[in-house]
Design a protein around this nucleic acid. Structure first.
Lengths: 293, 293
DNA sequence: CCGTATTACGCTAGCCGTAATGATG
DNA sequence: CATCATTACGGCTAGCGTAATACGG
């Protein structure tokens, strides 16, 4: 077996073409490299260099050696990369959600029960991406807006969310009990860019130029304050007290303006997240009870 | 990058389970291994061992590390193997032939013109194997009994060979100008095992139980001397003076008892073997001249 | 002479083994 | 106390840099 430092030096020489350049790249001296190359050649037991006119170059065998040295170095680097990535994955819980509200609501429980882990959250447009990500181990927990079929997953119902349109109290819609997407056609409506699958729902019903999409949450907040423009909201947000004086929120009557969220993990990981699922269950039960009253 | 000796020691520990066993396998002492494992863990910067009850074992990350360490070591060994194989291939000319006589005839020229190289010869049953071997670089030169089509090959006619049956001078066949395979049916005939494609020809025309195949050349020679059994021979062999007193060789009339040999190499190698092909050409011309007389 | 590779020489980092010490059952 | 791992210590190899040498365009 050839020591790694020899392979690194050899690969550098193969790339650079001269010992001088390679030694500069590696921050070592020429004599050191010269000695190492001689040692490598000796250890292999075959000639890999062509020496002529105080110029060192690879012969045919040397080119083969350089090719395989790169592979061996890559395998060595792969070891390091994979070990670090695996170690990181042990310390990290990666969570994907199709919508921002349920993930925000779950954060305190996650931080409490996974306090020793790094929590990484991501907003994803479709349940499909979440489910493949879950199987790929890209995600450890996902929040879906549809019930998955897969038997290899453990899944639990979490919460419901109803989308509303918030308008100025003087707006004609302010008097209505509910409105439909169809009625909004042609209205300019403010909408956050970070709303997960809801964006697909909006685009499905409304024309894109009517949606004033704001990527930054602060910018959106300022626009809501400064203008009388209607914007999307949800019953959950309103319950949280995020309502502005002088504005009225009207539920949207379309069926897909309502979502039921599900929390899922790989069935084999169920026990790891028992506490999380307990929180999810109690949250669902509490809200079911409130709704039945 | 991790030095190879650390990976070797780590892989040995992963295989053996304890430092003691691994140290015995590697012929080093326990403390050395203990120190190395600590160093490896430190260089990776993550925990890869589980220490408990004065028992060292791999944790989950360590198992990942062991898996990739094996790969890195394999890549290192591959470098050595391929470099040695390539170097060897540079010093070796590998020659495949479908028949023993033409290769023997070519040996003096090969030894003269490739004196700095190791000459490796192999007897092969079919031209097909020779041609794929030539493309595979398993062979550098091949002697075929059919003209190849491939444009990527350089090819030259070499010699002809006519198979005869040698019988005792008192045998009825001894008087004939020629005989056919059909006439030999039912006769016991001695035949060498090392005759390349000729064996297929014999089996095609004669039943296998009639062919007394002798793998060893000495054994065959002794049987020929000691018995009056007929055996196969060729015009080339007879020309060389390998005729035994009291025996007569009768040419076989079947079309496939005659072969024309061709010498071929990869077209890109043509220049390497120019001297060889010159010898082949002069051999062919000399015999053509003699036959036309 | 400048660019390049090699040789000579002395330093020291680090790898190794021996011996001693822990830790566990 | 037997087994296994770790720590402590000292020796020595071998990889490193500096300086000097060789060789060509």
């Amino acid at each position: 077996m050839i020591e790694t430092y020899l392979l690194e030096q050899f690969a550098a020489f193969a790339r650079c073409g001269t010992l001088l350049k390679a030694s500069e790249e590696l921050h070592i001296t020429q004599p050191t490299l010269s000695r190492s190359m001689k040692k490598l050649e000796e250890e292999l037991g075959v000639s890999i260099f062509h020496r002529e006119n105080s110029k060192l170059s690879l012969n045919e065998t040397g080119k083969v050696a350089a090719e395989y040295a790169e592979k061996a170095l890559q395998a060595n680097q792969d070891l390091i990369d994979h070990v670090l990535a695996y170690d990181r994955s042990l310390r990290t819980v990666s969570i994907g959600s199709s919508s921002p509200f349920p993930i925000n609501e779950l954060m305190p429980a996650l931080q409490e029960y996974l306090s020793e882990k790094t929590i990484l959250t991501e907003l994803v447009d479709t349940d499909e991406l979440l489910l493949t990500g879950l199987k790929n181990r890209k995600y450890d927990l996902v929040i879906l807006h549809s019930l998955p079929e897969d038997k290899m997953l453990y899944c639990q119902r979490y919460m419901d969310e109803q989308i509303c349109l918030t308008v100025d109290e003087n707006h004609p819609f302010a008097q209505k009990k509910s409105i439909s997407f169809a009625e909004m056609l042609g209205m300019r409506i403010l909408v956050s860019g970070k709303i997960g699958f809801w964006m697909d729902i909006c685009k499905k019903h409304l024309s894109e130029e009517d949606l004033l999409v704001q990527r930054g949450l602060e910018a959106l907040g300022e626009l809501i304050e400064a203008s009388a423009l209607p914007f999307f909201n949800s019953d959950r947000m309103i319950e949280m007290g995020v309502q502005i004086p002088g504005r009225v929120s009207v539920p949207i009557s379309d069926e897909d303006a309502h979502a039921t969220y599900w929390v899922a993990c790989r069935a084999s990981d169920q026990s790891k997240y028992r506490s999380i699922f307990n929180t999810v269950r109690s949250y669902a039960l509490r809200h079911d009870a409130r709704n039945s009253r």
